[in-house]
Design a protein around this nucleic acid. Structure first.
Lengths: 140, 140
DNA sequence: ATTAATGCAAAATCTTTGCACTTTC
DNA sequence: GAAAGTGCAAAGATTTTGCATTAAT
């Protein structure tokens, strides 16, 4: 965990640059999301976490905030099958390990990444992004 | 479209081999799904299609059937972000093109596939499968 | 006959929305 | 004070479930 004041300032700047007003709720949630390192959360998870930290935010606001952050490019939605929507704090191009036995998701380190190169793309289309999800199960 | 009788027999065999009783609803739905070629459907879509073909199936049964087929290995769930669950009639290892502007999903031909090789896998884990989704947007 | 599948409606989930109130600029 | 954000509860959307009825073995 980084120094509190530095982080708070950095986060406020981040929101302003994204054109989002730095309200208390957004600062609180961004504080949890961007404190340090990668994070993969659902709205439910983040709401529970905020509660544990005695932050006052409604679940609807958590949903709205995650969607706004994603629209602003601060977060990225991750496609995992199933009903819940995951958001990833790492927005640069990267890949994921998905632990099927417990539903955990982690980023691959850049040096672990799989190289992908598309040969042919349908007429009139171009590649926007390539999602790679490596599904893991316990060995043996 | 293949010959009707041949297809019907093939499908009935398919269900039996999967340990599923060949009921009218399952035969109807399997008939739509496995008539020929790849298909990517949601429960909603398949239910609507069944209706158009004057087949009588409830939406709940479509859901149940898709889940049973997937559990039996006849279909594969595809992870696309968003709320709806897609099922794919191609169950072998393969990759997808996803057209972001209209939500269409198609399989890559084997010769278009991207080679992926994972270097390091977390301790005690092994790769079950690698999902590759190539996101396309209109050119320019 | 026995066992499994279906249909319906009801419930359970997850997510978005409408609107009065509050906060930020 | 104007514009934007929040909270709550209500509505939406998707999916699952309980149970009586029907169909398959």
């Amino acid at each position: 965990m980084k120094d509190g004041k530095e982080t708070a300032r950095r986060i406020e700047r981040k929101l302003k640059e994204a054109g989002l007003r730095p309200t208390r709720q957004r600062l609180d949630l961004a504080g949890l999301l961007f404190a340090d390192g990668e994070r993969h959360v659902t709205a439910e998870m983040l709401h529970a976490e905020a509660h544990r930290h005695k932050m006052s935010v409604s679940l609807a606001t958590v949903y709205n905030t995650l969607n706004q952050f994603a629209a602003a490019g601060l977060l990225r939605e991750v496609a995992i099958e199933g009903t819940k929507t995951y958001f990833d704090t790492t927005i640069s191009d990267h890949q994921h390990f998905y632990f099927e036995h417990d539903g955990t998701l982690i980023d691959l380190e850049p040096d672990e990444e799989v190289a992908v190169a598309v040969q042919k793309v349908p007429e009139g289309m171009k590649v926007a992004r390539i999602d790679v999800l490596i599904r893991l199960v316990p060995d043996e």
